[in-house]
């Protein structure tokens, strides 16, 4: 077919030595690489330029002021805590989903993916309706513990737990399912208790997946905006996370300050994706 097209329809089919297929290959590569470049690299370059435009001192000041620093710290702290909780509960959930049968399991399994698809603003609305100061649950907790849930760090935690929950489950679950059941049985016939079997056999096998899931959950938390702006409000030094801080700076037209914090988040995100890649690579080696 290709040859015919090159020979311009004449009855003589002239063999061609043009490397047509190689051209196709190269143009495909060119297309893919330039798309990646335009879509991801260019914006990164621009934001880096903006961040450092007025020199290192200005960049340093844009992140090393009390408000920005506190926002960054709040983001890292809540994301890390949420990631730890999500990792423990997510691993547990994945284990239960793979190993046990219980009524309603299929529906439960389907519900896990909901935070992936749900607009996070909706998550925020749901949390406000449940824990807001005027609601039964919210006022009960505030009266009995003196702690406010909404417009405070606990509210951010709740939002991050919600949006990050599926990550660990969905990274650990497939690995658990592929695990050779006979390995566990071998451990048992050798005298290992269920607990020992988990720690010595199952856990080492799923550890890379758990770490990858934890990192994803952490990254998700760091980038979360929609639900936090609703549940946490925008109180500097108190409930303002890094993303909300960036939003506030953009709103007030201070792009330099927005770029500074953005670069920090970018660096963290990049470190995480590289780590996950490394984990995956090691698993296939």
């Amino acid at each position: 077919m290709t040859v015919k097209a090159w020979s311009k329809g004449g009855p003589m089919v002239r063999p061609t030595f043009f490397p047509t297929i190689a051209w196709g290959k190269w143009s495909l590569r060119f297309l893919a690489v330039s798309y990646l470049f335009l879509l991801i690299a260019v914006p990164i370059i621009v934001v880096s330029y903006k961040g450092f435009e007025q020199g290192l001192t200005v960049f340093w000041e844009s992140i090393n002021n009390r408000i920005a620093y506190s926002a960054l710290k709040l983001s890292l702290r809540t994301s890390a805590t949420a990631a730890v909780i999500n990792t423990i509960m997510g691993t547990l959930t994945a284990y239960v989903l793979v190993k046990y049968r219980f009524p309603g399991k299929a529906i439960f399994n389907a519900f896990i993916d909901l935070p992936f698809a749900l607009p996070t603003l909706v998550t925020g609305v749901m949390l406000v309706l449940l824990y807001g100061p005027q609601t039964i649950v919210g006022s009960f907790i505030e009266e009995n513990t003196g702690h406010r849930i909404l417009f405070a760090p606990p509210g951010i935690m709740l939002a991050l737990l919600f949006v990050g929950y599926p990550f660990v489950i969905r990274t650990v679950q497939p690995v658990l399912m592929q695990l050779d059941l006979n390995q566990e049985e071998a451990a048992q016939t050798l005298g290992a208790s269920n607990w020992e079997t988990f720690w010595r056999i199952i856990f080492p096998a799923i550890r890379p997946a758990i770490i990858a899931g934890a990192l994803l959950s952490f990254a998700r938390g760091l980038g979360e905006f929609g639900s936090i702006i609703i549940v946490a409000g925008n109180i500097p030094m108190k409930s303002q996370t890094a993303t909300v801080y960036i939003y506030a700076k953009v709103e007030s037209g201070n792009m330099q300050a927005a770029s500074g914090i953005s670069l920090v988040l970018l660096a963290v995100a990049f470190t995480i994706t590289v780590s996950i890649d490394f984990l995956r690579g090691r698993k296939h080696a």
Partner: peptide, 17 residues
């Protein structure tokens, strides 16, 4: 199985990877 004192060998070896 832990209390039975048997040694079991599986078809797919099932070594701890």
């Amino acid at each position: 199985p832990q209390q039975r004192d048997t040694g079991f060998v599986f078809q797919n070896y099932s070594l701890f990877r």
